[in-house]
Design a binder for these strands. Structure first.
Lengths: 204, 204
DNA sequence: GTCTATAATTGGATAGAC
DNA sequence: GTCTATCCAATTATAGAC
């Protein structure tokens, strides 16, 4: 069972190079020449693994989407300590949302949606949709525990996400300003405070 | 004082054609040939008015941004009838935000921000920033009238905008699903309801 | 001022040697 | 499997006639 020299090695380096290039420059502005150079391979090799530039983008989006919601679980949070739990969720969520990789992949998908509508669906299901499920699950548990007064958990989860995203997400998509860590945490806390004003209960 | 044949006429038709083409297909996918054809002019004429494709995009974005917040004034709304006023604002705002032209221009700017960072700033100031000012002004008046319990009007205005934008805005940017008019109004009312749970007062 | 025709460059994709 | 060298189509931009 001696492992054969991994044939995935070159493919991996190509994919990694494509990822760096696309995330840094977008789809249209990056040439296959540039990707090949960055990967330390020739264009011919590149085309041996991926039949077109479009397919290469698809592979990058799929992989990046997969990693999106990876580190975001709300399962272990205690619904009885709502404020602390919501703050923790908001922090993680916002940090993820504003990370350079996620912003970059968002930009590409939004910018190329006219040419590649399928990418958006892949991204949505792997990313935002999973996040919403996590949030909704937490809202349901908190509602049961009596610490949140929520009738429609799906709606509330969406509104929580929107409050956390705030203006800062769109600003980052537009490349306006650099968010420091303090601003990020402040935004998260403001979102939680307003959410609690709307849905909090006397239970503390 | 016989007026000379308006020299702006051709420029206008070129700009209009470029606008249609860019909004429909994005920046990279549209060629100068296509724009010239659509404008009923030759490429040479086109380059006589705009020195490059980039400059043409800049002109389109500037014009489109100008029209963004045009029909959105909250000045005439009565802060004493908060719910009705907020519903009216939310309706207008969401309708604007989800209009095909605004979605399209958003996509282009976001997708090309790596190449043209200046466009984003133009857009932001002419669009979202003006909207925020209108919202904040209304919040301030309602706070004075005692119909909203708001300490930080700037923050509250941003949160209102975020609630209204909701998930539906990002979904539209990603080209997922078609929002009918009923869904739009429902989204607006849900946003207002939550905002009022957070900031409403006993005053009705 | 506007057009036709063309230059000049780029970039996606491939053939063929090793 | 990988590389070098090349093809071909498309695109931006311009020169020169009318």
């Amino acid at each position: 069972m001696a492992a054969p020299a991994a044939p995935t090695e070159k493919a991996e380096s190509i994919l990694a190079a494509a990822q760096r290039a696309f995330l840094a420059g977008g789809f249209g502005a990056v040439s296959m020449d540039a990707i090949a150079r960055e990967a330390g391979a020739s264009k011919a090799t590149l085309y041996a693994y991926f039949t077109s530039k479009e397919e290469l983008l698809g592979a990058v989006v799929a992989r990046q989407s997969e990693r999106y919601a990876e580190g975001l679980s709300a399962g272990e949070l205690d619904p009885r300590d709502v404020e602390a739990s919501l703050n923790a969720i908001a922090d993680r969520f916002l940090r993820l949302l504003l990370s350079p990789e996620v912003i970059a992949i968002n930009r590409i998908i939004i910018g190329e949606v006219a040419r590649f509508p399928a990418l958006a669906a892949i991204f949505w299901r792997a990313g935002p949709e999973r996040v919403r499920v996590q949030l909704e699950e937490f809202c349901r548990r908190a509602a049961t525990a009596g610490t949140l007064d929520i009738a429609d958990t799906r709606l509330a989860a969406g509104q929580f996400a929107s409050l956390v995203r705030g203006e800062i997400h769109l600003q980052q998509l537009l490349g306006l300003g650099e968010p420091d860590d303090a601003a990020l945490r402040a935004a998260a806390r403001n979102a939680v405070a307003t959410f609690l004003r709307a849905f909090g209960t006397a239970e503390k």
